[in-house]
Write a protein that binds this DNA or RNA. Sequence first.
DNA 1: TCAAAAGTGTTGTGTGTACACCCATGT
DNA 2: ACATGGGTGTACACACAACACTTTTGA
Lengths: 230, 230
Amino acid sequence: MHHNGHEDSNPSVTVDIVIFTIQKSSLKVLLVKRKYPPYEGSWAIPGGFVRYEEPLEDAALRELYEETGVRDVFIEQLYTFGAPNRDPRKRVITVAYYALISSENLVFRPDSEVSDVRWFSIYDLPRLAFDHDKILDIALKRLRNKIMYTNIAFQLMPELFTLTELQNAYEVILGRKLDKRNFRKKILSSRIIEKTSERKVEGRHRPAHLFRFLPSGMEKNNNKEELINI
Amino acid sequence: MHHNGHEDSNPSVTVDIVIFTIQKSSLKVLLVKRKYPPYEGSWAIPGGFVRYEEPLEDAALRELYEETGVRDVFIEQLYTFGAPNRDPRKRVITVAYYALISSENLVFRPDSEVSDVRWFSIYDLPRLAFDHDKILDIALKRLRNKIMYTNIAFQLMPELFTLTELQNAYEVILGRKLDKRNFRKKILSSRIIEKTSERKVEGRHRPAHLFRFLPSGMEKNNNKEELINI
DNA sequence: TCAAAAGTGTTGTGTGTACACCCATGT
DNA sequence: ACATGGGTGTACACACAACACTTTTGA
């Protein structure tokens, strides 16, 4: 690693990946605690250097896999951040991605306070290293925007889910309540889910129907998105 | 310039900028003819290396200025392209931008066939170097999408303009006709333009009123955009 | 007086939104 | 029987789309 970047006319290139999931009715992002300077001890978005022969998206998927053990995940390029002083050591240009993963897919769930990788509620974030607060902010805006006219929210859901669970996902992401009847009308009329014969029995009340996404030529976690309107 | 990139663990970083304008009722992009290999003699989107201490957007603005002589232009980051083999010499990651410039602002208008920099209609493009056809395609999609819910089309217009001229700009970008009455209703109700006392006399027919954009806290070419709906 | 573009309203259709009650189940 | 969340329909406001004629000017 060069610490005197000026001898190298090329900036370094990294990928950073904002990983979202929903846990306990809360939208969470995965952060890692930095072990070395700069920003030692601060929390940061996972990321790392792009290998010489590695496509950018592959680098992002590799980082994602290293942190979460999850493959076959929806990711999308977000924005490229290149302020000359965003890393105090040398010029580092980072291509930011965001990912949505279903909490059922999590191989390990870094929850404990002692771990150096942890899920944080978007409403209870620590101070972040570098310009990562800006990256996270833009990722959240993109997610909130895109959930309104695409089906990306489905990437956050398990295989089978109830309409209330789906609505909760939307509400948690948007940070506001939605009307139950209007939501169901909209989702059902978009013909992207189908009712299964199964029900979810949970507590002493009427069981909910379970739904699944319609394959419709595109598979879940296929990195494809379809236009809908909520 | 290294020709053996493998000795340098860092990819090179460039910016490329898709420059749009409207000329003669046609949407045009600026292309430059390459003087050296690879792709010698092919047309390409203007671009160049990012200097070590230079913000990405500054690099894009610099390239834009070098090719067009225009400053204070609307530009927006588009996407970052980083396929390992997109440049046959070595790994080059390019951060693509797009720009909209009013043809009245053009200091020089590269029109002649002999020049090595020229405006091309988007419907009559030459074969492009590298992956520049993909970049241009994405830029055009973004422009067409964004024109529908922001005021960026105004960046393409002169200081004073008629409603018919503005509608032509929309039609040329979208590649389809719009309804005159509905268009005027929409634009006028969005309260982002104001009628001036001047008229444009042109030909043997009724002169059109000239309009200008309302400052509304944000200046033209301020790289800000406002949400509207067309 | 004619050619050419400017300018102007209404109506139907569809979409978004607000809103309240009965149903099915477990305890 | 009751507590709990599941599930359902209607009415109103607004946005969008389709559509044709009159006005103003220069030649």
